[in-house]
Amino acid sequence: MKIAAIQMRSGLDPEANLAALEPLLAEAADRGAAYAVTPEVTLIFPENREQLKAVAAPFEGHPHLARVGEMAHRHNIFVHIGSLPVPLEDGRFANRSVLFGPDGAQVATYDKIHLFDADIAGLNAYRESATYKAGDRAVIAPLGDFTLGFSICYDMRFPRLYNALANAGANLIAVPAAFTVPTGQAHWHVLLRARAIETGSYVIAAAQGGSHANGRATYGHSLIVDPWGRVIAELDHDAPGVLVADIDPSAVVEARGRVPALANARDFSPPALQN
């Protein structure tokens, strides 16, 4: 199976973002990809709640998602929108992934579970939970000979989620992201390779890259990692582009057979200090 990671430089105008996505999806399909994943905040990349409120639309009947479904149908390809903001009743938003099938119908959705709340030295406190509401459900979906596991960006720092996805049957895990440049340079490759090694799964990470209209800068470097932890494809830059690689379910079986970490894992009691 051929899969594709689409790297973007999304801005604040959903129409412009959709116009940028269309030729990238067409290229992925022309290169034989049966599945393509886009970055986090594909359809709008906001910096604050005011920017979100200006353009976010209700999930049911969402006009831009309807257009993505049409693209999936036109190109006969699974299209995984890495995420978009969805308004909720409490005034916050869900950071939601949406998978479309080749027929253009929605197959699955996932709301980002882990939110970045941190006090960073030299910077203002960052409270993602002030704007977004965390999801509470891990999600997998059938994808041809593979089972797709869902995650979004900051999720990649929480291996328990990936272990749960793999134990539920996922052998390909998607990580749409909008990683900052400093953290990307330090952690992007090693975290994604670790999640592949720990689960014996393919990992595909579609990234935002470059300088955005909201003033943010993101790392790019979309990549695909095999179940042994090898980077088999990478966009070694932060410009928009399409990354395609062949994946084989037998490689998952081989990796999990050589290091049966999932099968060998055991439950245990929390640590206790011994005198």
Rank of each mutant, 00 (worst) to 15 (best):
A4I: 12
I6P: 06
M8K: 04
R9V: 11
S10A: 12
G11K: 03
P14N: 00
P14M: 08
E15R: 01
L18V: 10
A20S: 10
A20I: 05
A20P: 01
L21V: 11
A26Y: 00
A26V: 02
E27N: 06
E27G: 05
A28P: 06
D30G: 10
R31M: 07
R31N: 12
R31S: 08
G32A: 04
G32I: 11
A33R: 05
V37E: 05
V37P: 01
V41T: 07
V41N: 11
I44K: 02
F45G: 02
R49G: 03
Q51R: 01
K53F: 01
A54H: 02
V55Q: 07
A56N: 12
A56Q: 03
F59C: 05
H62E: 10
L65I: 12
L65E: 07
R67T: 12
E70F: 01
E70K: 03
R74W: 05
N76K: 14
I77C: 00
H80V: 04
G82L: 07
P87E: 02
L88H: 01
L88N: 06
R92N: 02
N95R: 13
N95Q: 13
R96C: 10
V98K: 07
G101P: 06
P102W: 05
D103V: 01
G104V: 05
A105F: 00
Q106M: 13
V107N: 05
V107G: 03
Y110N: 12
D111C: 07
D111H: 05
I113L: 12
H114L: 15
L115Q: 06
L115E: 09
D117V: 15
D119E: 13
I120R: 09
A121W: 06
N124H: 11
E128V: 09
S129L: 10
S129M: 09
S129C: 04
T131F: 04
Y132H: 09
G135Q: 08
R137P: 04
V139W: 05
V139H: 02
P142H: 03
D145K: 09
D145Q: 08
F150L: 09
S151I: 06
I152Y: 08
C153N: 03
M156S: 06
A164S: 13
L165A: 15
A166P: 02
A168Q: 14
G169F: 11
I173F: 11
V175P: 00
A177C: 15
A178G: 14
F179D: 07
F179M: 15
P182R: 09
Q185C: 07
Q185P: 01
Q185Y: 12
A186Q: 13
A186E: 15
W188E: 01
H189S: 09
L191T: 13
L191A: 14
L192K: 04
R195I: 14
A196E: 13
A196T: 11
G200K: 04
G200E: 06
Y202E: 02
V203E: 14
A205C: 09
Q208Y: 06
G210M: 03
G210H: 02
A213L: 08
S222H: 05
P227H: 00
R230G: 14
I232P: 04
A233N: 02
E234N: 01
D236A: 12
H237A: 07
A239C: 02
A239M: 08
L243H: 10
D246H: 07
S250N: 00
A255P: 07
R256Q: 14
L262A: 07
A263F: 07
A265Y: 10
A265R: 13
A265W: 10
D267E: 11
F268V: 14
L273P: 00
